[in-house]
Computed example of a mutant assay.
Amino acid sequence: MTAGVRIPLCVQCGTHSNPCRCKVVGPTLGFLAFAVAAIVEWPVGALVYCFRHMKGRRIMAHPAAVVYPSVSNAFPI
């Protein structure tokens, strides 16, 4: 058996941004950007949350609320 690297593949169907009504590239890149942003922002947000609750919540929500939708919607395919 060989150990291979598995790349996450996200599919979004039912979209009207292209004729096929399915997106693969946008959601996949959006997920990868979300994961990178979350690795950085969640620990920072948790530290800030100890002192400023609302600011910490906004920092921890940033990958899901801003990064993923921005990157996912940037690619129509």
Rank of each mutant, 00 (worst) to 15 (best):
V66A: 09
V11W: 01
M1L: 01
Y49K: 13
P27A: 02
A37N: 09
R57Y: 01
F75L: 10
R52V: 14
K23A: 05
G56V: 07
P69V: 09
C50T: 13
A37G: 11
V24G: 03
S17T: 13
P43W: 00
R58Y: 08
V25H: 04
P63N: 09
P43S: 07
R21E: 10
V11T: 13
F34M: 14
A61H: 07
R58K: 13
H62Y: 08
F51G: 15
R57G: 05
F51D: 08
G26K: 07
R6D: 06
S72C: 12
F75E: 03
R57F: 01
R6I: 12
G4P: 08
Y68I: 06
H53A: 06
C13F: 06
M60P: 03
H62W: 06
Y49I: 01
P69N: 10
T15M: 00
N18Q: 04
P76R: 09
P69Y: 00
A74F: 13
A35K: 09
P43C: 03
P8H: 05
F51A: 13
R6L: 10
V11Q: 05
A35N: 02
A74Y: 10
H53T: 10
I59Y: 04
K23I: 00
V5T: 11
G4L: 09
S70R: 14
A61E: 10
H53C: 05
I77W: 06
G4R: 10
H53W: 11
C22I: 12
